[in-house]
Write a protein that binds this DNA or RNA. Structure first.
Length: 112
DNA sequence: ATTTTGACGACGT
DNA sequence: GACGTCGCCAAAA
């Protein structure tokens, strides 16, 4: 397949697998991909996520602190917060309060 | 080909 | 316990 087995595409696919009302961290995805130390790459991939044909729920991906670090990349609006809140996430000061509650680890949940 | 970055993470002070 | 710095990998300039 001409699927670019690139790191980016992998991240996009995993990000799309994030269930509704759930969030994950860059490190979690990176770990699932086998490159736990490449958490930064995941974030970078998200930056290019807009280049993907399919929409990537990047708003469900936050850093390990649960802070919406990437909300600035959503067009400058608080759309990211609104979306997460809409899914049941509690956001306060750009930070997910119930992060531990809605945290979704692909390497754990998605792992068969 | 080399250098810089980049939406992180862990360790150190 | 809060703040700072370094380290990681991979892609873009």
């Amino acid at each position: 397949m001409k699927n670019k087995d690139g790191f980016f595409d992998l991240v996009y696919q995993v990000a799309r697998l994030i269930p509704y009302g759930r969030v994950t961290s860059y490190g979690a995805i990176a770990k699932y991909l086998g490159s736990a130390q490449s958490a930064r790459m995941v974030g970078w991939a998200m930056n290019n996520s807009h280049t993907q044909k399919e929409y990537v729920p990047a708003h469900r991906v936050v850093n390990r602190t649960g802070m919406l670090t990437g909300k600035h990349h959503f067009g400058g609006s608080d759309v990211m917060e609104d979306l997460l809140k809409n899914e049941g996430a509690i956001i306060a000061e750009n930070q997910i309060v119930n992060f531990h509650q809605i945290f979704w680890d692909p390497a754990k949940e998605l792992k068969l």
